[in-house]
């Protein structure tokens, strides 16, 4: 199914909320094609009613901005509004194994506050997360586990490899260290550093957000899917 050329024109505030609700339904059917598990559909469906409630609640809330004039129009592409939603609600699975895991805690801590990027809902279940944040050395003993976890995640899913150990094995050119986690999972963003400063991690997350927003093709992921049917 392709919705790329379908445009939505939204007019009044009331209509805006109604249409947005409809966009949500279209998105469900779009995902229906993408996903196969009934479980996830249930989750999305319940998510819809929450969205509706949210909209109602926002109507009840005091208005800080003047209401939109009747004659203002908002147009967007379906893909971009979906991408906007996706990029601002990444749910990371923090796969911290080593030193980088401690820096990742700092990124989520009060000073650097990953929550500002909409990615504060840390999920340890691969079924509930869409960003695999691999922070730390992956050994050959751990590699099959990383692969399993990646396979358990639902589409759309992204992988960030944090730190040189995960990117390339780092200075552990050693008998038990996987020389780069991209040998087992397709990596979207590599963050160098040993460990990377939290600013670098935030930069990596923002890079991924830009990738999602622009819908950049990901040939490495396609190649991985072909190699691991």
């Amino acid at each position: 199914m392709h919705f790329e050329n379908k445009k939505l024109s939204l007019y009044t505030r009331k209509e805006f909320s109604d249409k947005l609700f409809k966009v949500g339904i279209v998105e469900v059917s779009l995902r229906e094609a993408e996903r196969t598990t009934a479980h996830h559909l249930r989750k999305r469906n319940t998510g819809m009613s929450e969205m509706q409630e949210d909209l109602k609640r926002s109507e009840r809330m005091p208005k800080f901005q003047p209401p939109l004039p009747e004659n203002v129009g908002l147009t967007t592409k379906l893909d971009s509004i979906v991408a906007w939603g996706r990029k601002n609600s990444l749910w990371p699975l923090p796969f911290g194994t080593a030193c980088c895991g401690i820096e990742m805690m700092s990124v989520m801590g009060p000073k650097y506050d990953l929550a500002r990027y909409g990615a504060e809902v840390v999920r340890f279940s691969p079924r509930q997360s869409d960003l695999l944040l691999i922070a730390g050395t992956i050994t050959t003993k751990m590699a099959p586990i990383v692969k399993t976890i990646y396979a358990q995640m639902l589409e759309p899913k992204y992988v960030i490899s944090m730190g040189v150990c995960a990117c390339s094995g780092g200075f552990y050119r050693a008998y038990h260290v996987l020389q780069g986690v991209d040998q087992v999972v397709p990596v979207d963003v590599y963050i160098p550093g040993c460990p990377p400063a939290p600013e670098a991690v935030l930069d990596g997350i923002m890079l991924l957000q830009r990738m999602i927003a622009t819908g950049q093709p990901r040939p490495w992921k396609t190649a991985w899917e072909e190699a691991n049917p």
């Binding site: 050959t140 003993k141 590699a143 099959p144 586990i145 399993t148 050119r173 050693a174 008998y175 038990h176 260290v177 996987l178 020389q179 040998q183």
Partner: peptide, 19 residues
Amino acid sequence: HALRKDYPADKVQLCTSPL
């Protein structure tokens, strides 16, 4: 046995199954 002197430090063995 990895720490024997005759085992090369950088000889990685890719193992595929979790225990």
